[in-house]
Amino acid sequence: MARFSKDASDIELMGSLRAGNQKALSILYDRYGGLVYTVALRLLKQPTEAEDLTQEIFFNFWKQDKYDPNRAVLSTYLCLVTRSRALDRLAKRATQQRSLQKLQGLPNRSITPLENATLSEQQETVQSALSQLKDQQRQVLEMNFYQGISHADIARQLNMPLGTVKTRARQGLVELRKRLGNTIE
């Protein structure tokens, strides 16, 4: 059985997991369980449902073995899978899901310097960038991400013209990308 330490890289741990060492899954959970649970809780709102989904995400990650480290770092992959599964649970498999699939027809993006940074550095950088957006832009962008609903639904919820919602969401994403600068290239 493969040997590994708690400082092993994600790739090493995945190799160990594939070789049958389930302890590697516990270490990956210690590394990313908080992140997965946080995203699940943000979308599902209910702690027990977030626990169930976190369990499911790690079980499927282990058993289904669909993760390709050349396409995304593990933290980004787990966040996106959690979001996607949470939206499934909310029965709101809306346009955002298609957007991720649609891009698969284009060349893969490379892993960015931000994603290669430590989790705490990533969080500090993204939190700071988001805090610099206008409140209205951030609100629409977060509704888009965490509720997975169309801009028409957001416009209805906020009682706002559709054009305004679209503009704010697009400007919000452009601003976020500007604030993240070369860390995201």
């Binding site: 992140l35 946080t38 995203v39 943000r42 995304a72 933290s75 980004t76 966040c79 996106l80 959690t82 979001r83 993006r109 960015t112 931000l114 994603e115 989790l119 990533q122 969080q123 950088t125 993204v126 939190q127 960038a129 988001l130 962008l141 977060e142 991400f145 994403l173 976020l176 990308r177 993240l180 995201i184």
Partner: peptide, 10 residues
Amino acid sequence: ASFEVIPQGL
């Protein structure tokens, strides 16, 4: 990539 890292803001 900017869109995909939004959860890191939580």
